[in-house]
Design a protein around this nucleic acid. Sequence first.
RNA 1: GCGGUUGUAGUAUAAUGGCAGUACGUGCGGUUGUGGUCCGCAAAACGGGAGUUCGAUUCUCCUCUUCCGCC
Length: 375
Amino acid sequence: MAFKIIHEDKKTKARIGILKTKKGTIETPFFMPVATRGSVKGLTSEELHEIKISAVISNALILYLRSGAEILKKFGGIGNFMKYKGVNFSDSGGFQMYSKSIYIKSNNDGVFFKNPLTGEKIFMTPEKNIKLQLDVGSDVAMCLDSMPLYHNSKKEIEEAVKKTSLWAKKCKEHHDLIQKNISKEKRQLLFGIIQGGIYKDLREKSAKKLLKLNFDGYSIGGFGLGETIKEEFSVVKQLKKLIPENKPVYLMGIGNPLEILKAIKLGVDIFDSRMPTQNARHGTLFTSNGKLRLLKKEYEFDKFPIDKNCNCFVCRNYSRAFIRYQLIHEELTGKKLATYHNIYFLQKLIEKAKERIQKGTFKEFLNEIENNYEE
RNA sequence: GCGGUUGUAGUAUAAUGGCAGUACGUGCGGUUGUGGUCCGCAAAACGGGAGUUCGAUUCUCCUCUUCCGCC
């Protein structure tokens, strides 16, 4: 069994679990920064270890388009390549169907992408994608899914659900086939992705199809793109009732601190998002009082750290004014320091949440955090 | 002093006898499974004065100003 629950909160659905991968075991809940092309922009793997980030997620499709996949294979996988000791997830690239620069179209057999660097047209099938993610050598792979957008019609979303189910079956069968001679402990895990937008009937249909295939974990995809949190959480609650307790649940693309905590309360185990890193680069910092727009002029001479309650390397050593100055003048150091802080902040927040789940006071913790947030 | 030249948001620049545009900067908002330099919105200017004209930032004159040349 790849996933085991070791602690359950009595007042909420929050839980602590252990995910077992070929690279080792890590505790849930956890947040993964995005390392799209094999690195978390601005941070070294040593720094990720220092912050105690236990997993990162890279993008198999983007790596492939830039010949990264080929190199990774020669290096024995992305973990060896980037010298990262934690767990490596890989995303299939299904999400890139929202990217106009590379997406062309899709049908029941796969997706047409174009390589923006060479103009080459690529037909990405579920089978090819699985092979690709095995070459990337991640510890946990995602199925190729068809991701509808929030503004798509219900009919279009239903189509996407259909394709996602079809591809999931192909992904799972191919994944099992390629790894059939590998011992269980050394196999890459594979997660199915549930789609269906905000429509509960479609989500249910999608979940049921995937549950039959018995994936190692279940991802909830297609959120964070325009729907309200209420709509999102309503679906998360519904899906949690359908997914067996002993399967890890991964809410894809969600990186807002408060949103993460509230999802943990609903029993979500895994998160990823480019939000903390991207926001950092653009000057929006996470703090215990909510977000801080560091580029505002009022911080020009500010000698305080980003967050006075934060104990990270950046907050112990640098002023808001310094980081702001570096960011404004486009010095890499500014982006790096801001990124370090945001990732540290999220990591610490989840660590605290885990402690409080263990103490049985997670619900109170959530209230405390919410009361401190201004936004 | 004489001749020429210049004057438009904080800065740099357009256009026009009839709503003065753009970029950067500033302010505010956004960013959720690619985006190292991202996106959206807003405030903000015709040096001053007189004249011609229905109407002048635009044409004329005066004045101040910029820069260049000459004495």
